[in-house]
Design a protein around this nucleic acid. Structure first.
Lengths: 236, 236
DNA sequence: GAGTGGTCTAGACCACAAC
DNA sequence: TTGTGGTCTAGACCACTCC
């Protein structure tokens, strides 16, 4: 494992466990590089990671101050699978697979997936049922040339995990878009909408490590259960 | 100006202008460091910025591939003022100031702003009127001890600009939360809701460079005009 | 084997904060 | 003046891709 990742993980754990408290200052970069026996640049890589993830704020001439994570629990922004989210939730969570088929790409899908009309596409429709209510409708479209098989029990678990662990494809980044829409007939059929006339739609374009687009996903949420958290640093 | 920022800006401009096309590979880090007359680590800082902002994807053993920005126009995630957004929009944009007062913090505000009940707080209520329709209701709360004056004409323009340029306070980062809510009476009074029974609320906690919390903002959007774009890299 | 990006080092000088 | 983080250098070795 990398040195700077080890240092990052050790420090972030200490912050999460409260051994380093909000408002406290970390040891200086010089001191950390001495105590870990690494160069200062390596310490700086670890501290920059902490800063990007909202653990600390570096202040020139002063030091690195531990931030208060508790206000927003955990910055869940970025690429997090539903399975990882579900682990942190209380209540019963269940995934129902409504459709799992290979379809030819229509014009919309061909455009979203950057492929040709008629190319074979996996279509997966699932609902996430929380405490007996269907809260999220997930519609996944995956390029079938990269995913020959897609077992239904893996869809009930986590497609990400299957793709990464079993197929060895490395997911690298995603472009997300959050909008509100009127519920479609499908939304009304599959979601427990409880009278709401809006769904929050998270549209996701997922790319592999070689920058190849391979998945388009729409997560359609009942509005009262939707929550999106982000941590943004100022671009200077 | 920093060397790595100059290189970042030059390369990002070339990508935006299409001089470097999606799918093309940048010159290697070695070649760039030679042509810019800087060390390789400096080039790498510039390339890492490009990567974080979604311009390129670095692929080990191969090179840095230019990504397709057009699909999602510009990654608007992060800290962007409404004024900056408005510049990119077509149509007429106007800001109406409904309230600009100093109030004592109630319990909710004291908690949001991490201060004491009764502390003086600037309260600013504005609507963003786009093509004649009030689309966004912005409620801003600023700690008055850091902002002695708040001219109404600066509120019509940009509070961020006033705080940064005139007061010399450096905004550093924000924690954002996006949720959907039922419209309040105030929403119904000040927004052109056009029959929608939901508003999208972006809650923002804004911090200064010394990690001091100084502003809490709620941006309440009419759902059909709301759009949030994010670019997320996988945490490994 | 040649070329790529990823990590790491041991220095250097700077701007800024605190005393 | 001392200590902090910010930038930058000129090397080194590694893992990976491609031929």
């Amino acid at each position: 494992m990398n040195k700077y990742l080890q240092i990052y993980q050790e420090l972030s754990r200490q912050i999460e466990e409260g051994k380093l408290r909000p408002g406290e200052t970390l040891p200086s970069e010089h001191a950390l590089s001495k105590s870990y026996g690494v160069s200062r640049e390596t310490v700086r890589k670890a501290l920059n990671l902490l800063s990007e993830h909202g653990y600390i704020q570096k202040i020139k001439g002063k030091g690195s101050v531990v931030l208060d994570l508790s206000r927003f629990e955990f910055p869940v922004s970025g690429l997090v699978s539903f399975k990882e989210l579900a682990k942190k939730m209380k209540g019963t969570v269940e995934t129902v697979v409504h459709e799992l088929t290979k379809v030819p790409a229509d014009r919309f899908l061909a455009q979203q997936l950057n492929t040709e009309e008629g190319d074979r596409i996996w279509k997966v429709v699932r609902t996430r049922v929380i405490d007996g209510e269907a809260i999220i409708l997930d519609k996944d479209f995956l390029r079938a040339n990269l995913v020959p098989e897609l077992p239904v029990d893996r869809c009930r678990d986590s497609i990400y995990e299957y793709v990464e662990d079993d197929l060895g494809l490395a997911i690298s980044f995603a472009k997300k878009e959050v909008v509100a829409e009127k519920p479609s007939a499908e939304d009304r059929r599959l979601l427990s909408l409880a009278g709401f006339d809006t769904v929050i739609v998270v549209k996701n374009h997922v790319y592999l490590e070689d920058a190849c687009l391979f998945q388009y996903t729409e997560s359609r949420h009942r509005p009262d259960k939707f929550r999106f958290v982000d941590f943004a640093r100022r671009n200077r």
